[in-house]
C-alpha cells in the first residue's frame, strides 16, 4: 500500500480546469483586441470628439491587422519551430544565431546567383532552408550524442551562429532589393501582403506535421513521458534530433520572411527572436515541461505579443511598459497552465 491511484471525478462540468486553461490564451487575445479600441474611445471621449467604439477605431481595422500580421510572421515561424522542441520537453535557444546565419547566407547566395527571383537566385531559398536544417541537426546531435542539456547546447549553437554570421558579413548589411522577392511585403491580396499567406501555409504544414505524422506524435510522446516512449519502442534520440532539425527549417523560414520584411540581411536580423518566440509559446499555453500545447497555441501567443506591441504604441503608452506587461503575462500564463499541486519541485 504505498500508492493509491486517485479516481478522477466524472468530468461532467462545463467549466473544467482543463477547458479554462485551453481557452484562456484565446480569451486574452480577444480581450486585448477589444481593450485597445476602448482606450482609443476613452481618449477621444475625453477630448470631446465623436467616436463610435470599434467602428471608428484605428487599432481595430483591417489595415492595422495587416500591420500586426506583418510584424508577427517572422516571429511566428521561429516560434512554431521552437514549439516542437518545447512539446518534447526540451528547449531550443539557438534561434537568434540560426536566423542570422540563414538570412545572411540567403542574401549572399541570392545576390551572387543573379539577385532576382526570376533567375537562378531562387535557389537561395532552398539553400537557406538546408542551412537551417543543418544547424538544427548539429544542434540536436550535440544535445543527444554529447548529452548536453538542450538549453545549453542550443544556446551555444546560437552563439556559434551569430559568430558565423558576423564572420560572413564582417558586420555589414546586405540589401536584398529584388522587387519580385520584396513583393512578399509590397504586393497585397485582399489587404494582406503575400508574406502573411506564406506564413499561413507554413502554419498549416506545421499543424499537419503536429497532428498527422508519426514525427509529430512522437514529439508529444517524448514530451508526455520519455520513459514510456522509450518503453513503447520509440527511438527517442532520433526523434529529438529530427525535432531540432525541423525547428531549424522553421527558423530558416522565419529568416526569409524577416529579410522579406526589411529588405536587409545582417547579423542583427536574429535579434530579439529568442525573447519574442519563447514568450509567445509560453503565453499561448504550451507547457514548458512538454507534452501539452501546439502550433495553434503558438499562433495565439504570437498574436498576443504583437497585439500588445502594436496596441501600446497606438494608444500612446510609453515603450518601457510593454516589456513589463509582457513579463507579467508570461508569469500569468505559466501560473494558469500549471497545476502546481502536481509539481513538487520547482527548480
Amino acid at each position: 500500500m504505498t500508492d493509491i491511484t486517485a479516481q478522477s471525478a466524472p468530468g461532467a462540468r462545463f467549466l473544467t480546469r482543463e477547458r479554462i486553461i485551453k481557452w484562456t490564451p484565446l480569451l486574452v487575445l480577444v480581450f486585448l483586441v477589444l481593450l485597445f479600441p476602448f482606450f482609443e474611445w476613452l481618449e477621444d471621449f475625453g477630448a470631446g470628439k465623436e467616436h463610435m467604439y470599434l467602428a471608428d477605431s484605428r487599432f481595430f481595422s483591417i489595415r492595422n491587422a495587416a500591420r500586426i500580421f506583418i510584424a508577427a510572421t517572422p516571429a511566428l515561424m521561429v516560434a512554431i519551430g521552437v514549439t516542437f522542441i518545447i512539446i518534447m520537453g526540451s528547449i531550443d535557444l539557438s534561434m537568434e544565431g540560426t536566423v542570422s546565419v540563414c538570412a545572411v547566407i540567403f542574401a549572399f547566395a541570392f545576390i551572387g546567383w543573379g539577385g532576382t527571383l526570376a533567375s537562378w537566385a531562387w535557389l537561395a531559398i532552398p539553400v537557406a532552408l538546408l542551412v537551417g536544417a543543418a544547424l538544427g541537426f548539429i544542434n540536436g546531435l550535440v544535445h543527444v550524442r554529447l548529452k548536453i542539456p538542450s538549453f545549453m547546447a542550443s544556446l551555444a549553437m546560437g552563439f556559434v551562429g551569430t559568430g558565423l554570421a558576423l564572420l560572413l558579413t564582417g558586420g555589414d548589411r546586405i540589401r536584398v532589393e529584388d522587387e519580385l522577392f520584396r513583393s512578399l511585403l509590397t504586393v497585397r491580396w485582399f489587404n494582406f501582403p503575400i508574406m502573411v499567406y506564406v506564413a499561413a501555409v507554413m502554419l498549416l504544414i506545421a499543424w499537419f506535421i503536429q497532428s498527422r505524422t508519426t514525427l509529430g506524435r512522437n514529439f508529444y510522446a517524448v514530451g508526455g513521458g520519455e520513459e514510456l516512449a522509450h518503453a513503447s519502442g520509440l527511438n527517442v534520440n532520433r526523434v529529438r534530433i529530427m525535432g531540432f532539425t525541423l525547428a531549424g527549417v522553421f527558423f530558416a523560414v522565419g529568416a526569409l520572411l524577416a529579410v522579406g520584411r526589411i529588405g536587409i540581411a545582417e547579423t542583427a536580423t536574429g535579434n530579439n527572436f529568442m525573447f519574442v518566440s519563447i514568450t509567445s509559446v509560453v503565453v499561448g499555453g504550451t507547457a514548458l515541461w512538454g507534452g501539452i500545447g501546439g502550433v495553434w497555441n503558438t499562433l495565439v501567443g504570437v498574436l498576443i505579443v504583437n497585439v500588445i506591441n502594436n496596441g501600446m504604441v497606438v494608444i500612446g503608452l510609453p515603450n518601457f511598459l510593454q516589456d513589463g506587461v509582457l513579463g507579467i503575462l508570461v508569469i500569468l500564463a505559466v501560473v494558469l497552465s500549471t497545476d502546481r499541486k502536481s509539481v513538487s519541485f520547482v527548480k
Binding site: 481595422s61 510584424a71 520584411r261 530579439n272 500612446g316
Partner: peptide, 13 residues
C-alpha cells in the same frame, strides 16, 4: 526591426 514595428504602429495611430 523594432523601428519597423513602431513605425507601422505610428501609422495606425
Amino acid at each position: 526591426q523594432k523601428a519597423n514595428q513602431i513605425m507601422s504602429s505610428f501609422i495606425t495611430r
